Amino acid sequence: MAAGGDHGSPDSYRSPLASRYASPEMCFVFSDRYKFRTWRQLWLWLAEAEQTLGLPITDEQIQEMKSNLENIDFKMAAEEEKRLRHDVMAHVHTFGHCCPKAAGIIHLGATSCYVGDNTDLIILRNALDLLLPKLARVISRLADFAKERASLPTLGFTHFQPAQLTTVGKRCCLWIQDLCMDLQNLKRVRDDLRFRGVKGTTGTQASFLQLFEGDDHKVEQLDKMVTEKAGFKRAFIITGQTYTRKVDIEVLSVLASLGASVHKICTDIRLLANLKEMEEPFEKQQIGSSAMPYKRNPMRSERCCSLARHLMTLVMDPLQTASVQWFERTLDDSANRRICLAEAFLTADTILNTLQNISEGLVVYPKVIERRIRQELPFMATENIIMAMVKAGGSRQDCHEKIRVLSQQAASVVKQEGGDNDLIERIQVDAYFSPIHSQLDHLLDPSSFTGRASQQVQRFLEEEVYPLLKPYESVMKVKAELCL
């Protein structure tokens, strides 16, 4: 049975990233139509530049190519590739079939990587351009969430054990800070992308030097003109047959890092959902379990974690691919890159769409948070109580021993009897502590235990987050809708 299948058929496997999760716009960027249309555009740009620099290419040939950029006979191309065992030459023939007058000058002087690699770089750039505003929107939604809850005390956790208090907004800023680093890295790697350009079979530009009869300047002009037509500021000066596969490492490393950030955020949300302090959106008709109707599973956060793990592992592909590119190139890269580049971007696209949807509907339960604080705060307040007693004339050592005994009794009630923490009640009825009984409410005010959390939130948002989001103001209103 021949390899390949009808990918629109229910009898043929289709990647869930495309069929179930990723956005239509990201799927289109990695589609065959987008790819092969870009090949034709690159052939047109090459012909236009070659004509401008004096090669015998007519206006009629150029116009014929322009008129057929979208006229792609995919069936013919597939048949040609089956016959020739070469995808680029299959599309040269297919393009030439609908451009008979231009057929002889299509791909003039070029090698397969002229269309293959340059198209990949265009796709990487455009895919990054799709991700950047999506990530900015996630940051914006979380920034709104953090600002609104900047002063809401909550129990902090280290080692997932109760620690000092923080605020809900401050905790959210930990998430935002990681995503801001990801946004900066995505922008950097996007701006650092260079075009492969017009380089020939081993990167020496020998074929173009021959076409222009040894004119170095025209060869350099050709490279520059096509690079500018493709919208790049610069091209690699040095290439082998391909652009260095280190570029793929750079791009997928940034995406993998984004995956790590999203995994951490969504894990926190899942843990908070278990504590009943916070939940992701839950639709009115949504079913959490087929057997347990009360369940409210954090399905979206779980999906993000599941896909983020996949995204983090994909960076190993370009690392290994770059390491086995012998001399000017081997074909070890080809099949692998067809999979890992598309999957990385479709996965990143999915987790950003999902995280935006989550961040637009996060639900906080202040009463649950308050109750958990009441359970733990008495123990945390013991040092403040000791200091207040010393100020009232008591002995630190005597007070410490009193607190120690009462704390152990209260802990026994919590752990052995399943009761509430009654340390404060014990202190309130103990005559030894009568000098500070009137101060206990103040000493137990949760806001006095959150330090500068709310001020940190305000400063972080104003100095770091809002300036970073400013270039994306025009796209901030787009909502994230999930079908599944």
Rank of each mutant, 00 (worst) to 15 (best):
S112P: 01
T350M: 11
L468V: 12
K82S: 11
E463T: 10
Q325L: 14
G394Q: 07
D11C: 13
C305K: 02
A90C: 12
D223V: 02
L132C: 15
P435N: 09
I176N: 06
T267A: 11
T239C: 11
L255E: 01
N185D: 06
K35Y: 06
C98D: 13
S23N: 10
Q61R: 06
G109H: 02
R300D: 05
I385P: 04
R426D: 10
E279Y: 05
L352M: 13
K35M: 13
L443A: 05
H400G: 03
I176Y: 03
C113H: 00
I106D: 00
L444K: 05
F157W: 09
H263M: 06
N297G: 02
I105M: 10
F195R: 02
I123D: 01
M26P: 02
N71Q: 08
K264M: 04
K391N: 14
N297F: 00
G169I: 01
G8A: 15
K295W: 03
T111C: 01
Y34I: 02
D332M: 03
T119Y: 11
L271S: 03
E473R: 14
L362Y: 06
L186P: 02
A77R: 02
D248M: 00
S301Y: 04
L131M: 13
I287N: 06
I105N: 13
Y13L: 14
L311F: 03
T239F: 03
I265H: 08
K233L: 11
D182L: 03
T158C: 01
M387N: 12
E64Q: 12
R459A: 13
S140N: 15
L255R: 02
T330C: 15
C27Q: 08
N71K: 12
F195L: 10
G231V: 05
T202R: 01
M316P: 05
H159R: 01
Y13D: 05
G104R: 13
S434T: 14
K295M: 02
W45Q: 13
K477R: 15
E50T: 09
D6V: 11
P298R: 02
H159Q: 03
R309M: 11
C173F: 02
D117P: 00
F30L: 15
R137I: 14
G259L: 02
D317E: 05
S474D: 14
D332W: 03
V315P: 11
G197T: 01
S395I: 02
H93M: 11
N68R: 09
D398N: 12
L53Q: 09
F433L: 07
A110H: 01
L275M: 13
R20A: 00
G418F: 03
A260L: 04
I238K: 01
L444G: 04
L135P: 04
R338H: 01
K415D: 05
Q286D: 00
M278N: 03
A256Y: 03
C172W: 05
Q164V: 08
V465M: 06
F195E: 02
R188C: 06
G214E: 12
S395Q: 15
D268P: 01
I386N: 08
A388H: 05
I238A: 10
T382L: 04
R40W: 01
G4I: 15
L193D: 02
L108P: 01
E48L: 06
G231D: 10
V405Y: 12
S306V: 03
E48G: 05
L108I: 12
S67P: 08
F282S: 13
L258M: 14
V138Y: 12
G156W: 00
E279G: 06
L252G: 14
Q397Y: 03
E277T: 04
Q51K: 09
P366R: 09
T450Y: 06
A150Q: 12
Y34F: 11
I427Q: 05
H107S: 01
S19Y: 14
A22L: 10
M389H: 07
L174R: 03
P293F: 03
G5Y: 14
M380T: 02
L108Y: 10
I265V: 12
T38H: 05
P471V: 15
K391F: 00
K391E: 11
L55Y: 07
S31H: 06
S438E: 07
E473D: 15
F327Y: 12
I105T: 11
R270C: 00
D349G: 09
E463G: 12
E328T: 00
L255S: 06
V405K: 14
A335V: 08
T202E: 03
R459V: 10
L444P: 00
E383K: 01
A103R: 15
G169Y: 02
F282K: 08
F327S: 07
A260T: 01
T111E: 00
A342C: 13
V368H: 04
A163P: 00
H437A: 12
K229G: 04
D317G: 13
R329A: 01
L186N: 07
T201E: 00
L275A: 13
V363N: 06
S359N: 11
V413L: 09
Q210G: 12
R85K: 14
N353P: 08
A47L: 04
G169T: 03
G200S: 12
I369Q: 08
E302C: 02
V226S: 03
L346A: 12
I176Q: 05
A49E: 04
D317I: 05
C180P: 01
L252Q: 07
A146L: 01
T201N: 04
E228W: 14
R309W: 03
L152A: 06
D349N: 08
K147G: 11
V198I: 15
V247W: 11
